[in-house]
């Protein structure tokens, strides 16, 4: 008896492990939508995706997690919507732009999910201590990568790099970061890396 329990537990754990790495719920339903996958993996009782239709008459909203794949989640008076510094009730969900990336924590299991908290994706901000100024970069550039002990990386697409760049920069487009980072980035993990792109951050 005990032995069998252990086996089934192990099996369940294995199944869960297999599914969770693929971002799929117990029933095999994806819980992390396309663009969210870049930064998020599956979490229990949480679904991440793009906001679809909101139906105030039925107190439901849709979350798109893939092509033709949606979750229908209920909400009620207790559901809170966290949008940056603002927290409001579920009625504000219908004011969000269509397709906005959201994360929903729910109770009631995936067969009848009830949203407890809806978190709206905020634009990514560079942490203050990660910022470097023009003057600091100009100083480095005047020393050169050897003396200045830095690697300056242009994250724009190759075509934009060919149109000109900050002196001493090397090109590592964000789109091909994974493929090329091992070739372009220095061996020394403590070396100063400075990234820039075509827009202010």
């Amino acid at each position: 008896m005990i032995h069998r329990n252990k086996t089934s537990l192990l099996l369940a754990a294995l199944v869960a492990a297999t599914f969770s790495t693929a971002g799929v719920s117990e029933a095999g339903k994806p819980t992390v939508g396309g663009s969210c996958k870049k930064c998020h993996t599956a979490e229990a009782d949480t679904v991440r995706g793009n906001l679809g239709t909101v139906s105030p008459d039925f107190n439901t909203l849709q979350v798109k997690v893939g092509k033709n794949l949606i979750w229908i989640v209920n909400y009620d008076d207790k559901t809170s919507v966290v949008n940056g510094d603002k927290t409001s009730g579920a009625e504000s969900i219908k004011d969000l732009p269509k397709n906005k990336e959201i994360s929903i924590s729910y109770s009631g299991g995936e067969s009848k999910p009830l949203a407890t908290e809806i978190i709206v994706k905020q634009p990514y901000k560079v942490p203050e201590d990660q910022k470097i100024t023009n003057d600091e970069v100009a100083k480095l550039v005047s020393m050169g990568p050897g003396k200045g002990q830095y690697t300056l990386i242009d994250a724009r697409p190759t075509g934009a790099f060919l149109g000109g760049h900050i002196p001493t920069a090397i090109s590592l487009p964000f789109d091909s970061f994974e493929e090329n980072c091992s070739v372009v980035l220095p061996q020394d993990k403590d070396r100063l890396l400075v990234f820039y792109c075509g827009g202010p951050t």
């Binding site: 560079v126 990660q130 910022k131 470097i132 100024t133 023009n134 970069v137 724009r156 760049h165 900050i166 980072c181 980035l185 993990k189 403590d190 070396r191 100063l192 890396l193 400075v194 990234f195 820039y196 792109c197 075509g198 827009g199 202010p200 951050t201």
Partner: peptide, 17 residues
């Protein structure tokens, strides 16, 4: 994520430069 410890971003970007 790759383990680099001294990573900076030119916050003004190329337009600011």
């Amino acid at each position: 994520k790759l383990g680099y410890t001294n990573v900076k971003v030119l916050s003004s970007g190329l337009p600011g430069w």
